[in-house]
Design a protein around this nucleic acid. Structure first.
Lengths: 234, 234
DNA sequence: CGAAACATTGAACCGCATCAATCAAAGTGG
DNA sequence: CCACTTTGATTGATGCGGTTCAATGTTTCG
């Protein structure tokens, strides 16, 4: 994945979205399309382990992930970490900034990541001015609802199903087609805390999937040998 | 609970919210406050077992429950019913009408219920006109997110904790104070399908809570003897 | 009253968590 | 570059909680 366009031209200094290939599909692009004066969207590189925000911080920024990967998580009352979601390229983090005063999750980079910061105030203002932009934001919220309902459903399935379902979800790109291989950016521990299982159980599920000839693993890389079988499980 | 105001005055025929005590706290009241010509909000009585909408129907109505109780549910691929939520007085059903074209759940009355139908088009239109109304709708969506996150957390707890946590949630009225007794409007089966457990496990959890002196049951009625102990569990 | 639906209780089984050990990969410092 | 440490992943053995199957008790309603 190339991030050559992070080198800032003088144009991009005023509007980082002007030289972004994804501007047409991104809330940031829409936010800066009818150009007001100052740069509203800011690009940033985030080191592995660095936080985008913490729970309780004033929710003043909507993040769009350009590259890399992040996770959102909370620490439950018993001290356990609950992973609420992973964000890859083109995903949003901190959507609660649209409808709440403060973040209720923590967000941290799983690897070196490239993100765009959209001021929540600008997003709200644009929502007021443009119903179509508002509908795009609502659509994002709607997708998040669907994802959460999916998580709830997964929580009622057996371990192998949870892992299979997760893989199917991850393999489906935003363009709709289904890839046959993937690099999982998160650790087994994070995946377990996302799926509501232990690392041991997740590990065993992967082993079983491999033994059945559904997939092959090489470290974080994961190749789907039998997509139909994977789909059938989830 | 009295529903005397369902008897329609000629005023109320044009605007059912004009004689509703809850109009000030209800999206319906806000929708009809700056009165346009025809009645936008329609009241209806829904018989037990009658559906408000089905999954796949065009999502053209936002429902507000005035009295009674409803549940939303989906039938998963394996034929099992998954209950996604219960709606009591002042709760909304069909929130997806704000951001989606069609409902993705079914909604059915658990008992004779009184509902208000808000046309989704009118809600969207008012959102465009009034940022504060828009923020109220967004706030509803935000609360739904919180509820879903709570459900996800509950899904990782033991059976007794799930039931205790559910009770605590139900006992907390929208005014913030905590009641000491409650009539559960849903069957054990529905509750089990909501909590991701079996009816037997839910039943045993209630029995254990009673044996520990936390609560007393008389049919659907549930009296909390030791609120502190209940809170401590959840 | 009698039937049907719902709720409760009991016994046995099974899947996941837990505890524990080994293995693999990635740094780190001499 | 190689020992050494550290971190993460895998595999194994055991126990427990919730499901499953089955029976009984309770409520509701024609």
């Amino acid at each position: 994945m190339s991030h050559a366009d992070t080198t800032v031209s003088s144009d991009a200094a005023n509007n980082p979205c002007s030289d972004c290939a994804r501007a047409g599909h991104c809330l940031g692009g829409a936010l800066t399309a009818d150009s007001l004066h100052p740069p509203q969207v800011v690009r940033r590189v985030v080191a592995k382990g660095e936080h985008l925000y913490h729970a309780g911080d004033p929710a003043d920024t909507l993040y769009v992930i350009r590259g890399g990967a992040t996770k959102t998580y909370v620490c439950s009352s018993d001290g356990e970490e609950e992973v609420r979601g992973f964000q890859l390229a083109n995903d949003a983090a901190g959507l609660e900034s649209v409808c709440d005063r403060s973040y209720h999750t923590n967000a941290v980079a799983l690897s070196r990541s490239w993100v765009c910061k959209l001021p929540a105030a600008a997003v709200r203002e644009k929502m007021t001015r443009s119903p179509s932009f508002r509908d795009r934001v609502l659509s994002k919220l709607c997708h998040e609802f669907e994802r959460l309902y999916g998580m709830l459903h997964r929580g009622r399935c057996a371990a192998d199903q949870r892992v299979a379902d997760f893989l199917v979800t991850q393999l489906r790109g935003q363009d709709g087609d289904i890839r046959s291989e993937i690099d999982l950016p998160m650790s087994r521990t994070d995946l377990a805390r996302y799926l509501g299982l232990t690392t041991e159980t997740v590990s065993r599920a992967f082993t079983r999937l491999q033994e059945r000839g559904v997939l092959k693993r090489r470290g974080a890389h994961c190749e789907i040998v039998n997509p139909a079988a994977l789909q059938a499980l989830s």
